[in-house]
Design a protein around this nucleic acid. Structure first.
Length: 578
RNA sequence: GCGCCUGUAGCUCAGCUGGAUAGAGCGUCUGACUACGGAUCAGAAGGCCGGGGGUUCAAAUCCUCCCGGGCGCACCA
């Protein structure tokens, strides 16, 4: 499709004297499919040519010759609509998909540059709630998308494993701790202690002081405090790992906040040397007033350091280590101001790569009654959500496909898929109101819809004696495209539309990366699945006349491949049966 | 108070860099050939795109003000 766009641009550029790039920028997708694949609005030329746009469209249409992917150019009012040569597109695209298989849609535009992605970052000793799902799932999708576009992706889990709350936790554990309960259900137990601490601190103000005391000990490297902290961290990590394994999420590094402890002094010193930071009320503060930002506190008056100091150290460390081309922070929108300050600090400190740092914000998951709060015990555990989704999927499978062999496996793919996809399909900037009914709704624009389409294609291919998913690039195509492949595809509108949608995969992928919005890709997959279902209902495959049958099988395999690849990039599995 | 995000059909949301009669899903109603899995498909109903002003040949989209919702704004992360 990109090739088609290029051909249009060049043809029009030759006729109008515009730059091909400028033409391409004006090209748009018409609102109705009968209006072609691309349209050029002629208003842009009206003033220059001193002619009414409809006249221009007609004149241009008469001068454009079909050829290559360029089919018809038809003037409609002030627009010049372009129709792709579907036979040409099919003969080019389908063998290409077959050849590229699992890598179809991938490009090398990243040229090996590095994209560091900071995502998930759960807090040690706190339950992994649905709130952490967003960062995890968006980050994971971006990781895969950037990798697919030829970047070297580096995933970092910036664990929340440092800060005053660990002083509180140590204090609580020393008071009330029970090692056997800790071993049984570490995070749950630590979380209970944390909630208990806050409850009792309301009555007894000395607890807060005790918490600060133990955090100071921890920062000094005191033995008992450190040993407890290490234990908490290790046990929490094990639980998180289990969830990541379920979701198929990977990281290249687990460098939490504590990782930067020894680099903080340097950061504070650097800020002072640059004249950016100064002493104020006993604390070290950088004044960002000249940039319209609130002051940035680097060190508390008791000497303890702060979140932003660690983030500064982390950014500097990451640049030294990875020489990134871009550094993405997949972190909630509520921290936008924090990142504005962080990036401005980096800039003023003289790091030229400061503008390669990008905050990728997303909205909150909240209850109808208000936001989730770990401290108040208002959370929904991600594991519970996943379990219930899988259980529901299992039920549906038992009902609809009782003969299926490994139901558990398919149920996991569908259940996890529904949860992950449900998070990715809408614009990440928007808040999400948590609702069990919505999470457990598998109808409509959901992963199961896309997965079901995939499974049905697999079913068709199996019945044709073909083996879905096992067409490695080296293998010859299972169906010979013939001298005029796709010729028959012009017969039915549903085939043509499916083909055109199939061809748009790569540009949707690129758009997702450019905007860091996996939702574009998710929406595209819904559209492709929808087009497939229309095709499926109107165009018999197995019972078609021989030549048509071959071409339709080829089209099916193409759609199947793109559905699978697209789902993979979102972190969702594509089962063969469900 | 200031800043960022957000407001589209009863509900949940799309709408690509401004462009042709604003599109889906859910829900509601009506249909689908003893053909490839009906977790599907076709059709109907449903909209001053929060409101006013402005820019433009053209605004859901850009600017501005107002209203509603969310989130932030120095010793939490």
């Amino acid at each position: 499709m990109l090739e088609f766009k290029k051909q249009i641009s060049e043809a029009l550029a030759g006729l109008t004297g515009m730059e091909p790039g400028a033409v391409a920028e004006h090209l748009e997708v018409p609102p109705e499919r009968e209006m072609g694949e691309y349209a050029f609005p002629c208003f842009v030329l009206a003033r220059h040519l001193k002619k009414p746009p409809p006249r221009i469209a007609e004149e241009l249409a008469s001068q454009i010759a079909a050829g290559g992917l360029l089919g018809e150019a038809r003037p409609v009012g002030p627009y010049l609509n372009f129709y792709v040569n579907r036979a040409g597109l099919a003969s080019r695209l389908l063998p290409e998909i077959l050849r590229e298989g699992g890598h179809h849609g991938y490009t090398n535009e990243g040229e090996g540059r590095t994209a560091v992605i900071d995502y998930s970052a759960p807090n040690i000793a706190k339950p992994f709630g649905v709130g952490h799902l967003r960062s995890t799932v968006i980050g994971n999708a971006l990781y895969r998308i950037f990798e697919a576009l030829g970047f070297r992706a580096v995933g970092i889990n910036h664990l929340g494993d440092w800060g005053t709350q660990f002083g509180k936790l140590i204090a609580a554990y020393r008071r009330w701790g029970d090692s056997s309960r800790l071993k049984e259900a570490p995070v749950e137990y630590l979380y209970q202690l944390y909630v208990q601490f806050h409850r009792e601190a309301e009555e007894d103000a000395s607890l807060e002081e005790e918490g600060r005391f133990w955090f100071r000990k921890l920062e000094e490297g005191e033995k008992e405090a450190t040993a407890l902290w290490e234990q908490f961290r290790e046990l929490s990590l094990q639980e998180f790992q289990r969830i990541y394994d379920l979701l198929g999420v990977r990281f290249d590094a687990y460098q939490g906040e504590s990782f930067y402890n020894r680099q903080l002094e340097d950061v504070v010193r650097l800020a002072r040397e640059k004249g950016l930071a100064r002493e104020s009320e006993g604390a070290v503060v950088a004044d960002l007033e000249p940039y319209g930002l609130p002051p940035c506190l680097l060190q508390k008056k008791d000497g303890a350091t702060l979140y932003i100091t660690r983030d500064l150290a982390a950014a500097i460390y990451r640049y030294r280590t990875y020489r990134f081309d871009r550094l993405l922070y997949v972190v909630g929108a509520e921290q936008s101001l924090h990142f504005q300050q962080l990036f401005k600090m980096l800039e003023v400190l003289g790091f030229p790569w400061a503008d390669s740092c990008i905050h990728v914000p997303f909205g909150l998951i909240r209850f109808k009654e208000g936001r989730m709060s770990t401290r108040l015990g208002r959370v929904i555990l991600l594991e519970e959500v996943l379990e219930r989704a899988v259980e529901l999927a299992h039920e549906i499978i038992r009902e609809k496909n009782p003969a299926l062999e490994d139901k558990e496996k398919a149920a996991r793919a569908v259940g996890y898929g529904a949860v992950i996809f449900g998070d990715l399909v809408n614009d990440r900037q928007k808040d999400i109101e948590f609702d069990w009914e919505k999470v457990l709704d598998f109808s409509g624009e959901t992963a199961p819809y896309v997965q079901y389409s995939h499974a049905r294609i697999c079913s068709i291919l199996r019945k044709a004696g073909l083996n879905p998913g096992s067409f490695p690039p080296a293998d010859p195509p299972p169906v010979d495209p013939g001298p005029d492949p796709g010729g028959e595809l012009l017969q039915d509108e549903e085939e043509g539309q499916l083909l055109v949608t199939l061809a748009r995969f790569r540009e949707q992928l690129q758009r997702s990366a450019a905007d860091c919005r996996p939702s574009y890709l998710a929406r595209y997959l819904i559209e492709l699945a929808r087009d497939f279902n229309k095709f499926y209902h109107n165009c018999p495959v197995l019972h078609a006349e021989e030549k048509t049958r071959g071409q339709r099988l080829l089209l099916c395999e193409g759609v199947r491949t793109v559905l699978q690849n697209g789902l993979y990039l979102l972190g969702v599995e594509a089962p063969d049966r469900m």
